[in-house]
Nucleic acid binder design. Sequence first.
DNA 1: GTATGTTTCAAACACTTGTTTGAATTTGCT
DNA 2: AGCAAATTCAAACAAGTGTTTGAAACATAC
Lengths: 230, 230
Amino acid sequence: MTSTKEKILNVAEELFADHGFSETSLRMITAKAEVNLASVNYHFGSKKTLIQAVFDRFMLRFTNDLSLEMDRLDEADSELQVIDVLSTLIKPITQLDNLRPDGAGVFMNLLGRAYAETQGHIRRFAMEHYASILKRFTQLLHTTSPNLQPTEMFWRLHFMLGSFIFTLAGHEALQEISESDFDQKVSIEEIIKRLVPFMSAAFSFDSNKPYGTTQASDDVGHKKLSAGEH
Amino acid sequence: MTSTKEKILNVAEELFADHGFSETSLRMITAKAEVNLASVNYHFGSKKTLIQAVFDRFMLRFTNDLSLEMDRLDEADSELQVIDVLSTLIKPITQLDNLRPDGAGVFMNLLGRAYAETQGHIRRFAMEHYASILKRFTQLLHTTSPNLQPTEMFWRLHFMLGSFIFTLAGHEALQEISESDFDQKVSIEEIIKRLVPFMSAAFSFDSNKPYGTTQASDDVGHKKLSAGEH
DNA sequence: GTATGTTTCAAACACTTGTTTGAATTTGCT
DNA sequence: AGCAAATTCAAACAAGTGTTTGAAACATAC
């Protein structure tokens, strides 16, 4: 038997992801969850803290899995490549689908919404609670590219974060376009597996060398293979 | 003398960028613009259409400049590199600062907000109105990497778009962190100029070749960690 | 000047929002 | 069982929302 508190959390995270925080009223939540309106304030205090509770629960599931993946990387004593570090993100994201249909999509939508709250409380909340795991990820990434300056590292990390959250938060629209334009249905997992090597290549870019030396483009007459091989 | 209509547009675009669409009330706008509340409905019809008007005006300034930049690229007959195409974005974005203080920041905030409106009317509006210039940009990019499959191209383009919008929409927060962590103040222009070569390197990545050949780091013989395999 | 069309204004409208209240009900415990 | 704490419930609250109204003010033309 799921408690009232859980029923609220489950419905809230879904509606928040679909419609946004301020576009989702407590009445929408309590109606769909089939609980009384006042129970939100009783169990969570306010809408603000409900949002944080939803966000925190989802985030914990993800960061726990991510920590495990990073543990595995720490144990392995072979030399780390960028792609190894970025690949730690794949499982924690895709495994969110086990919790609910399209769990990864819901999670990413929430993350995107939270990030859009530029001046809001969620941003502060996130920075305070998840700074440590972000730092660990950054340090791991640093070992793969020790000659990268900290500031350059910082920016590249956020460039990548942008790509991840933005792409996966808007995956529904992108999936639609992909299907209508290329007749190709793509899952979130496939998107990530395209994104990881793409970003790894970007991270491996050496800004000290003159641009062009890492180019793969023109005169190398190489044959096409299937683009999505894994 | 600025008309009532313009006063509303100017204030609205600022408040929308700062607080979001639904978090900005018409009363906030009309109060700051020092116009009557009813004038919004009189001049624009509804809040919905006001949002579209704000978005459209900002978008036109940008796309006009971008078109000019792409014209210049068409005229040049030297072989185009990825970075040449991506560099067309620099000027149109930074020039938005001429219109108002931190114009580029406001623009990017708006773009981010609009994108977050996953199921909203703005998304549809944008797709209908700006599909042509996006297509032109895509085609230009295609000439630099003719052996890239259309689907791969599509995804890379949106990966990049994510990085751009996400990073620049959140530039205020990132600038703060950068300043407190590295004592470095960075302008939007500097962010873009970091982002463009970073993304160019990613685009130049040849997914057909085994990963590692475009590496700037050490040797080729990298050992695969089975981090993300199912 | 008067007449005509455009724009502004204060006030009200109908509706939704998050939150609080105090009584009713259920639950846990001895 | 009976008592006490925890939970649920319907109702109301105060505040804010976008929009409409009809009169006032303004502008422009004849």
